[in-house]
């Protein structure tokens, strides 16, 4: 029963092996447009039609415009550079994020479900999200921007391994 205070082992996480599909950049861009175009359209309409609100709508419009440009032009490319994933027989490892980066590792022995999820834009582009959930409500790993076939194959493989691992996954 020893108390190990932080005597840091000089270790670090290596990045996961696989990159995601390049099409994911387009996916993120389209997603961002789908969100921001209606917002900006409504605000512009308000600006044109409602004169009394112009002084403060102008500020809001500029802020929204800047955010829209960042999330449409910068964020997808940045995310593409960061997002990586890897699935071994013991664990699923993913890195994600842009302004806030995150590295997540979940052991296969605790995996409860493995799904390949596809939203409307993803379907259009032949992409798929691999969703791995564990018994912890906060412990799910989403690996976005995978090729449809790669995700399906990975989901199948992980499900098989998870079923072979004993334990009730808590």
């Amino acid at each position: 029963m020893t108390t190990s205070r932080t005597s840091p082992r000089a270790i670090d996480l290596r990045p996961p092996h696989h990159r995601i599909e390049r099409r994911a950049i387009l996916w993120w861009t389209l997603q961002s447009l789908a969100l921001w175009v209606p917002v900006l359209a409504v605000m512009t309409a308000g600006y044109v039609l409602w004169e009394a609100a112009r002084p403060w709508l102008a500020v809001a419009l500029i802020v929204a415009g800047v955010l829209a440009v960042i999330s449409t032009v910068v964020e997808p490319w940045w995310r593409y550079a960061v997002h990586r994933w890897e699935a071994t027989d013991e664990a699923v490892y993913g890195s994600s994020g842009w302004l806030v980066r995150e590295w997540r590792v979940a052991p296969i022995s605790r995996v409860q479900t493995v799904d390949a999820v596809r939203g409307p834009i993803e379907q259009m582009l032949g992409l798929s999200t691999l969703r791995v959930t564990t018994a912890s409500s906060k412990g799910a790993i989403d690996i976005v921007g995978l090729d449809r076939d790669v995700a399906a194959e990975a989901a199948e493989r992980l499900t098989t391994i998870a079923q072979m691992t004993p334990g009730d996954a808590t």
Binding site: V100, W103, R104, A169
Partner: peptide
Amino acid sequence: STVAVRQSLLQRRLGLKTVAAMSAAGWG
């Protein structure tokens, strides 16, 4: 079960990281 390490831009500048341990128990 799941382990996560997070780092925001400000945390990166300050040389910090947040470690999260996920579990099926309690708050998750």
